[in-house]
Write a protein that binds this DNA or RNA. Structure first.
Lengths: 185, 185
DNA sequence: CCATAATGGAACACTGTTGTTCCAGAATGG
DNA sequence: CCATTCTGGAACAACAGTGTTCCATTATGG
């Protein structure tokens, strides 16, 4: 009985989330009316799915967390040298698009990492890079993590403003991240 | 007659601007009441100096432009190699503090440079670096400029969140900018 | 075809911000 | 000491965003 009903609900919900990502990434101060309009949905309907603004933000956070985890899995961060793993991670994260802006501007806060804290798995990754000589030992893990995010955000906003190709922009990001973290000479 | 009067006015005005930099850098959506409170000034007084919110933003933009120009002059961007000049520029800009956040988040837009456009003097600087071999020729000037800003913002937010020393943070910024822009191998 | 679910519009109260006016008190220069 | 200036609090209307309720309309499964 709930087959197509539930399907419809899920689809509407997803449409709202997708629109929210897009709208809030461009303008963090956008109103719920803007989000509803972008999702082609009445404001009433939006409130039916997400009673309060905070409910929407929580849902966005969960969605973001899930996608980040998927990207990390795809990047196989446990393989190869530290730098190579970071390079793959960079590529996977880059495809997340609007998510980057939201997370970077801390519109949507991830629960497991307060600002100034580094993910454990990422810290391990950097340590591996320190050990195998592909990441400068002078750079702390938390710094490398911040650097990665800032470069991804840079790439994404570059893509939006300048009319550069996605491919070329990704190349620049990878090039600069690699140069920034590898040991000098 | 207007000696101390004008002095007082200038002092109040400056206090408001300083507070606005600080408050808006931390929270771009801060209300005028917040700014007034931070400046230890009644909201009425704030409106007396800056009738509308936009007037305050214009004043902030002018102040920012002036300080940026001063920093650029101090950095003597016409001397040395391209990379060395960028390094000095980085050092000078880094000291601008809250200004960085505001400019980077585009709360305050500079008039002479629309997003996606590169300052002429900066483009020349990068070209010089391309020619003297200290900046990778694969990196376009506009990208280097964006990179510089994103790294400065990174450094500044790192300073706020992590409890790192100003000196150490600047070292990390300079280290990573240099690594990012110099030619590989 | 019909009952149920989903939707969107209209209207409402509530809140916080903005910009304004008015006035009384404090500070300052002469 | 007095006149001028600067200040800040109170009160106000206007406005935008939020969250809610109610109702009519549209789909959809059975």
């Amino acid at each position: 009985m709930t087959t197509a009903r539930a399907g419809s609900r899920a689809r509407t919900r997803q449409a709202i989330l997708d629109a929210a990502f897009e709208v809030l990434a461009r303008n963090p101060a956008a109103s719920l009316g803007d989000v509803a309009a972008a999702a082609d949905v009445g404001r009433t309907t939006l409130h039916r799915y997400f009673p309060e603004r905070s409910d929407l933000l929580v849902a966005l956070r969960d969605e973001a967390t899930a996608r980040l985890d998927q990207a990390r899995t795809r990047a196989r961060t446990a393989d190869d040298t530290g730098a190579a793993a970071i390079r793959r991670l960079c590529q996977e994260y880059f495809d997340l698009g609007d998510l980057l802006s939201l997370l970077f501007r801390e519109q949507v806060e991830l629960d497991d990492e307060s600002p100034g804290t580094c993910d454990d798995w990422f810290a391990d990754l950097v340590r591996r890079g320190h050990a195998d000589g592909t990441i400068d030992t002078e750079l702390p893990a938390i710094w490398v993590q911040s650097l990665l995010w800032s470069q991804l955000y840079l790439g994404w906003s570059f893509l939006s403003e300048a009319n550069a190709s996605r491919h070329e922009t990704l190349r620049l990001v990878l090039r600069c991240v690699e140069g920034a973290i590898r040991p000098l000479r």
